[in-house]
Design a protein around this nucleic acid. Structure first.
Length: 207
DNA sequence: ATGCATGAGCA
DNA sequence: GCTCATGCATA
């Protein structure tokens, strides 16, 4: 079973009509390890050289300071990360829907890939401006919420097993399918769980 | 805030 | 079957 292809609907409240979006996503173009390249696909890093009133700053410091400023302003507005994610859909930016609390959190803590950060920055920047404008004119929103009973189960890998996985990862971060199967059996875990664990470990390590 | 998971796109 | 962006569930 594979639940939800749900897109919006965030944790706390602020639920609204959902739509299919996702345009910020899937901008990968990997051909070499450790190096990705943004592709002007509509979002984020357009290829403007940017001296003419655009954005696009290859400055990592600017990203960092923006993330920090963003969080600070967001909190002053009394808005949660989940609220921001859901509100993005209201910006009506072509190809931009909502984002999850997780993503907003990761943006603020700079725990997304550089490309992802660069792509999201203009969007969150737009939200921030809109939110501050809205606050100026005292806007209020209705508060409805949806009831959904589609749960998903999250596997929890016990500490001992996790330690083993980390040990394996240290010597071979990219085990073969067979090796993964062997590890899975030794640790009494589903092979897929082990495979995904390695994937996530690599992604995390890259960050 | 973070762990485990999904899915698109590519090789 | 990986990477990458992203999300649900949960610590």
């Amino acid at each position: 079973g594979m639940p939800g292809s749900d897109v919006c609907s965030t944790a706390s409240h602020t639920a609204h009509a959902a739509a299919h979006m996702s345009a910020i996503n899937h901008m990968q173009h990997h051909h070499h390890p450790q190096s990705m390249n943004m592709h002007p696909h509509g979002l984020g890093s357009h290829s403007s050289l940017g001296t003419s009133g655009g954005d696009a700053e290859p400055d990592p410091r600017e990203l960092e300071s923006f993330a920090e400023r963003f969080k600070q302003r967001r909190i002053k507005l009394g808005v949660t990360q989940a609220d921001v994610g859901a509100a993005l859909a209201n910006l009506k930016i072509p190809g931009v829907g909502c984002l999850s609390q997780s993503t907003i959190c990761r943006f603020e803590s700079l725990t997304l890939s550089h490309n992802n950060m660069v792509a999201l920055k203009p969007i969150l920047e737009a939200w921030l401006e809109e939110a501050e404008r809205a606050q100026r004119e005292k806007m209020s929103k209705p508060e409805i919420f949806n009831g959904g009973d589609k749960k998903r189960k999250r596997t929890s890998i016990a500490a001992p097993e996790k330690r083993s996985l980390e040990a394996y990862f240290a010597v071979q971060p990219r085990p073969s399918s067979e090796k993964i199967a062997a590890i899975a059996e030794k640790l009494d875990l589903k092979k897929n769980v082990v495979r995904v664990w390695f994937c996530n470990q690599r992604q995390k390590q890259k960050r």
